[in-house]
Nucleic acid binder design. Structure first.
Lengths: 111, 111
DNA sequence: AGCGTATATGCTCATCAGGTCATATGAACG
DNA sequence: CGTTCATATGACCTGATGAGCATATACGCT
């Protein structure tokens, strides 16, 4: 389970991360909110901790988990190479639509 | 193989996507550039096409593959919920360091 | 038609990850 | 100190998936 991408491939882990994005949570809280067996929550948290996505803090018998930003930033960095492509793609689409609009001004459907 | 996240969990598929981010490529070109067996490239491309990451165009015996933006944008949208957290986290860290610096000016270790 | 090139598909195998159940650890509190 | 609450860990099973190999399809050229 090396890459950060593999970690967030799992839907339950994404749900946990989304929860933690709001605020620090205990295992029990996650368990209740996601209606997921405690043992499963603990295992996913372990994976997330090993991969650096979360860190835990002890509060009596509870462990409070909070997010750590680095791995998600890594994913974000990988996505960056495609952002350039998105805009040019959108531009191309717009130009395409413009061409159609110029060539076929028959239908007056344009508001 | 539902989610876009599962698709990009595979390293070879990420490599293919990165290649296509530069420009349209044929299967053979991908095969050579990534030094990956053709049959494997074709299979990954199939997965990518089914998930909407790429589309193909026919050029004689070749198939030219190009990127499609939507699924990656979906991933980007999911990441958005954490961006807020990144900045506040950096701020918190800075405030924390500031507090330490003010409270413990004993050790002259600070440059 | 026949051959070479380019790509796709089907099959088998091995691996791995997640769910579940049982159980262990560990702290709080009477 | 024994019980209860909160969390972690280990074992087993099962399903999914990627690699590799063989083969199929399809186009172009002579």
């Amino acid at each position: 389970m090396e890459s950060s991408f593999a970690i967030i491939a799992e839907p339950n882990r994404r749900a946990i991360l989304s929860l933690l994005a709001v605020s620090e949570q205990s295992v029990g809280e996650i368990e209740r909110r996601l209606r997921m067996p405690q043992t499963s929550v603990s295992k996913h948290l372990r994976v997330l901790r090993n991969a650096g996505f979360v860190e835990s803090r002890v509060d009596a018998q509870r462990r409070l988990y909070r997010l750590r930003p680095e791995p998600l930033q890594e994913v974000d960095a990988w996505l960056a190479q495609f952002r350039r492509f998105w805009s040019t793609h959108v531009d191309a689409l717009e130009r395409h639509l413009d061409r159609i609009a110029e060539r076929e001004p028959k239908k007056g459907k344009v508001r």
